[in-house]
Amino acid sequence: MTVLDTRHTTVSPSRRGLTPRRGGGGGAAGYLFVAGYTILLLAFGVFPTGYSFYLALTNDQGQFTGLNQFVKVIQDYRFVPAFTNILVYLVMWLVLLVVLTVLVAVVLRSRMRPGLSALFRFLYYIPGALAGVASVLVWLFMLDPDVSPASWLLNSLGFHSFAAVLAPGNLPVIFVLIAFWTGAGGWMVVMYGALNNIPDEVLEAAKMDGAGPWKTAWHIQIPMIRQWIAYMTILAFAAGTQLFVEPQLLQTASLGRVSPTWSPNQLAYVFAFQQGDFNGAAAISVFLLALGLICAGLLVTRSNLFTLDEK
């Protein structure tokens, strides 16, 4: 049942075996093997990235305009609110995710019978199947006091109509709820797997020294899975900057009460589709691309989690 076990047997056994063994066949065969993928990589990874930069640095006549497009979108009255919204959302989401996932994983690992713990992990992770549009639609109903099974809770919090729930100040909380509902269960299982990987002797030693379960968690277990917590935080941050489906659907469902440019990706969408300004849209994409690239670069260079090659 342990996660890391599966990983060891199916995907990445130990570092001992990580030396790639190349054939003596030389270049030609290698090129043939990677040819198909490389074409896709160039067409849908490298080229669009380069093309966005090109569009962001030119105008609709194709003339080079330096940083003008960037200046234009930053000065747009919707730019700062969109990035502020996403920042507020990210802070709330990451704090909640890290605190609860780690806490629950520790509890499920150390304070519960394995069978029961497996059942809990399974139930927590089921909503992950509804990621995307389905999760947003489900939460539209959960937040509508007319039909919600938690309408008593909504009412006691002072929300008596769907419109009241959708007040602008509530939106980050709503998106955090949706993100947590679909994503946290999977991460709890991952953290549980990481905790499971800590040798029993270490925990036994802590117990002998008189450490209670909370002390063991705080001083031994959590420090030992630090790397996984960082991995989760960076991936969740990078994905969070891209928020699009949730605010877009909420905007549709709220009959325009929610701003159509709540998140940066939505702003880029409005630039491209409503204003026909592809250069401005590209400039916003470049900002988001840069954020994604920084996160990826951090993970690749600063953590030992990814195996680039034999060292």
Binding site: Q242, F244, L289, G292
Partner: peptide
């Protein structure tokens, strides 16, 4: 390059791919 594109959220490339 594979590693970097893999870690970047897939949504990052959607608008650039659309423009292309």
């Amino acid at each position: 390059i594979t590693l970097v594109t893999m870690i970047m959220p897939s949504a990052t490339l959607v608008l650039p791919v659309f423009l292309e």
